[in-house]
């Protein structure tokens, strides 16, 4: 059942994506140029990472508002080691960033499961604490001038085919998505994530340690935020405590457009990839048409609502045809 839902959502996400691409290529003249498509996919790569960071928590029925703050804190702590003049091997700051990210995620998980604080409030608190701590640590300015070996991962261009530039972020994110897809769809852990989110009580009765699963989801989310942090730092060539002040919004948008449902149990990695692409296409396409960025946000809002409505409608239709089981759609239950 769950698996089927996942497919429907993926499908409709890509349907919307294609519809939008067609619309933009009709109205915008240079939209379908290879260089532009390459640019869009490159920007979507970064969005996809934070989208997955959000997805793993949403799958369990939670939410993570602290993604941007974790990105800032974990990279700022390792900032000095990432600078060009640092003699520390590159791998050290990278590993440490991931460790710091996971630790903050662990803290989130602890608050949610042991202290029974709703994820919304717990991660909101972390958002404040981590951001404040990042600023207190950095004190002044930014760490500017990141090592080329780190920057390569986010800015490197591998080769160019007919104007289409294959960049490192595309490769990195494709591998990342494949790994995450495997973890979420093929492993026991992944199945438990879905199960915990779709019906916690039932999962508990069938022996799933739901609390531990929720903690793991938060740790994973923190870890991925750390990865996102490194990628963004490498991209902008600076570790900055201001990094990602609005990324909790972006992450939620990506996951929602990608078909994730706030009450948990529904969503997929490829949906998130589609969601990231949709946002990047909208941004680029509307820029192309000289539409100001504020209007883009409004359009994105409409797309989110439409995507979900479309998903629901599609699912209801499918259920009338095949499934006789009166399954209540998840989104109807409540966010």
């Amino acid at each position: 059942m769950m698996r089927d839902n996942g497919r429907i959502y993926d499908f409709s996400t890509f349907f919307i994506l294609i519809a939008i691409i067609i619309a933009f290529s009709i109205f915008g003249n240079s939209f379908l140029k290879a260089g532009n498509i390459s640019n869009i996919i490159n920007q979507a790569s970064f969005l996809a990472i934070i989208g997955v960071a959000q997805l793993v928590v949403i799958l369990t029925g939670g939410i993570n508002l602290s993604i941007g703050s974790i990105m800032a804190l974990s990279t700022v702590l390792c900032g000095p080691m990432m600078l060009r003049e640092s003699t520390v091997p590159v791998i050290v700051p990278i590993i440490l960033t991931l460790v710091f990210g996971s630790l903050v995620g662990l803290l989130n998980g602890f608050m949610v499961t042991k202290l029974n604080i709703p994820a919304f409030l717990a991660t909101f608190a972390t958002m404040y604490v981590a951001r404040g701590a990042a600023w207190l640590y950095i004190g002044q300015g930014v760490y500017y001038g990141i090592k080329e070996s780190i920057r390569f991962w986010a800015t490197g261009v591998l080769f160019e085919v007919g104007g289409f530039r294959v960049t490192m972020p595309m490769v990195v994110v494709t591998i990342f998505l494949l790994i995450m897809w495997f973890v979420i769809s093929k492993t026991n852990l992944g199945r438990r994530l879905y199960f915990t989110g779709s019906n916690t009580t039932a999962a508990e009765f069938s022996g799933v340690p739901t609390k531990r699963i929720v903690v793991i989801a938060h740790v994973l989310s923190g870890l991925i935020s750390g990865i996102a942090g490194i990628m963004y730092v490498a991209r902008i060539n600076a570790a900055d405590a201001n990094l990602g002040t609005q990324y909790h919004f972006d992450a939620i948008s990506v996951a929602l457009i990608g078909g994730a449902v706030m009450s948990g149990g529904v969503g997929s990695i490829w949906g998130v990839a589609g969601g990231a692409l949709i946002i990047a296409v909208i941004q680029s396409g509307m820029n192309n048409m000289q539409i100001p960025s504020e209007v883009q946000k409004a359009f994105l809002g409409v797309v989110i609502i439409f995507a979900v409505f479309f998903n629901n409608w599609f699912q209801e239709k499918k259920m009338k045809v095949g499934d006789t089981q009166p399954v209540k759609t998840k989104s109807e239950a409540k966010a």
Partner: peptide, 21 residues
């Protein structure tokens, strides 16, 4: 002429889009 919220990453995105357009 576009706003980028006094922010480094936003300015980078705005500039990328302009370069593309």
């Amino acid at each position: 002429s576009q706003p980028a919220d006094w922010d480094r990453a936003s300015a980078m995105t705005v500039m990328e889009n302009c370069l593309q357009t």
